[in-house]
Write a protein that binds this DNA or RNA. Structure first.
Lengths: 330, 330
DNA sequence: GCAACCGCTGGAAGCGTTTCCGACTACGCA
DNA sequence: TGCGTAGTCGGAAACGCTTCCAGCGGTTGC
């Protein structure tokens, strides 16, 4: 910066002010400084800048299972907005519970970021307290979290759309493949999607035998296994509601291999509207994933700008009817 | 840190050395310093540390199309290794040509990182010159880039495995669906995969009519369109080689909708071994994606540790035969 | 027995900014 | 004409750490 100041014929103090857009700098002076910086292709040192009391300009994004479409797409939207807002994205992939503990243990103390965005997972109270204690903002996207700014879908409503669709088609015996996160054993994942199932059946006066619900770790192959289990029932369902499209796609493989036709012999509905759902003609409940990332980014920007921010936003889902659902044969 | 030093009864110099694991510190002294730090729950300020030390402890990762499985998985592997190596990942998503130009023009990562990893895309010469301006290490993964340490597959070999498989099964009329990056119009994407096709056909003395090759922007729906075009030929192929699994899956949808059976009426083979390939019973050429990210990470770590690093690594691919390929009917 | 040496430690000079505080200029007003 | 004031600008002190260099006592080599 000394070079820039010298070249512009001003002191370092003035150069600093000009570069960081402070008031009390004459327009002409500012222009000269910026020109000099440009010519020298000067870039400020974030370390020094932060050390001297500024902010880091960095945001930590915590994401589990980054290679999955849902999380990667969320990240896509978020990164876009934050980049436009002049913030850098520091990526933290917490694959399992240990990673997670590790992250919340050290990151806040390290003072590396101004804010944390948690993607697609709930945040425990203790973790939230820890973050707030360190004075960093926190925003969540893609997973229902309370007590602080978040953006997500209404899982119960989404599940309801899926199951109600099956009921409307005339199905009376509907199975559910519930997915749980293998990295968070015992953690109630997407309880809304499960509750929706029970509520919809109850409202329609349909039986909900426990044998109709299969719970498996998240994933396509798990979905395949789960479907096999449902097929092994004495009286299999005529339709299946899967917690996610990946799981549903797995279920479809089992059906295909068993020689059953979709939707004639079995209807299948998922949630998410994964790109593959379109290719597989899977009926699903679409949620705007990219948009959730974008919204979370905007929320954070507002928060960092001093705004109070909204409490949270729930984005709407919608049923997308494709070829995997139809009335039951009988 | 001054507090810690005082409490431990040493100077700041010694405290610094003890905390950063330097040699030339007596074991007892180190223990005392660490204990003091522990009691005061002291954490080092990364900014100050870096300002004084000269390194940032951060790595920029440049990735296009992050929501696609391939890139996200590459990132997954890379992040894992870098995090273990104590480095933070600064994510730069260059979605389209504009982003890309912007990135290389402004070099937003300048002064912020010790190294740059470019994932899954070739770097033009001009861009490379810009990168070198940053004066940091550069590593590429998942896309062949020369002049740099890189890790990728041999696209020509992979393509060869796919096409040779079809030829071996007895197919004489083989179509190709070539994918190009919509964000990089006119850029020769994956030329190896195209060359492999021509070479394999030539070696087997098979015709390679230009009508058998359809080039579309990357994506499942594009694959579906491409397949439709192949089916509209007076004499359609009996097998199709797609540049990627997503494209192949799209092609399969068209076949399914047309009432054609796979593999009886048409064999389909892809490249990548996308998780969905397994669910769709798609024969493909698998490439170790996560591993490429991991390897690139290790390479970088070695480079940063002062090692000379290897020039590059090519990881092997292997044919995975599933249910989408079989000998032609006639 | 003396010098060279070694392992450990402390003092202090940066690292590149931001920002407080004081100074200087040019003006408006009495 | 003299003085207060607003608008600018420069000097210099942090910010919290790393590391060079020198000093210290004690050990080794000849």
């Amino acid at each position: 910066m000394a070079d820039v100041a010298r070249r512009a014929g001003v002191s370092m103090a003035t150069a600093s002010r000009a570069l960081s857009d402070h008031p009390h700098v004459a327009a002409g002076t500012r222009a000269r400084v910026l020109a000099a910086a440009e010519q020298l292709s000067y870039v400020i040192s974030p370390e020094a800048s932060r050390l001297a009391g500024g902010v880091t300009g960095r945001v930590a994004v915590v994401v589990p299972h980054i290679s999955r479409w849902f999380f990667a797409t969320l990240l896509d939207g978020l990164e876009q907005v934050l980049r436009e807002g002049g913030l850098d994205v520091l990526l933290y992939h917490v694959g399992d519970a240990a990673d997670r503990r590790d992250f919340f243990q050290r990151l806040p103390a390290r003072r590396k970021v101004d804010a944390v965005v948690v993607l697609g997972m709930p945040v425990h109270d203790a973790e939230r307290d820890r973050l707030e204690l360190m004075g960093v903002h926190i925003v969540a996207a893609g997973g229902q979290v309370e007590n602080y700014p978040y953006v997500s879908i209404d899982d119960a409503a989404a599940g309801r759309q899926a199951v109600d669709h099956l009921i409307f088609l005339g199905h009376r015996r509907i199975g559910m493949i519930a997915a749980i996160d293998p990295a968070e054993p015992g953690w109630p994942v997407l309880p809304g999607r499960t509750l929706a199932y029970r509520a919809a059946l109850a409202d329609a006066g349909l039986p909900a035998g426990p044998e109709l619900v299969v719970t498996v770790p998240w994933g396509g192959l798990s979905g395949a296994d789960a479907m096999a289990r449902l097929l092994s029932l004495r009286e299999p369902p005529t339709a299946v509601y899967a917690h996610s499209d990946e799981v549903a796609l797995g279920a479809m493989r089992t059906l295909r291999r068993a020689g059953l036709r979709i939707p004639e012999d079995m209807s299948v509905v998922g949630i998410d509207d994964h790109p593959m759902a379109e290719l597989a003609d899977l009926t699903t409940v679409a949620q705007p994933v990219l948009e959730q990332g974008v919204l979370a980014g905007r929320m954070l920007l507002e928060l960092l700008a001093g705004g109070s921010g909204t409490d949270g936003a729930t984005v709407p889902t919608r049923l997308v009817v494709r070829g995997s659902t139809a009335p039951p044969r009988r």
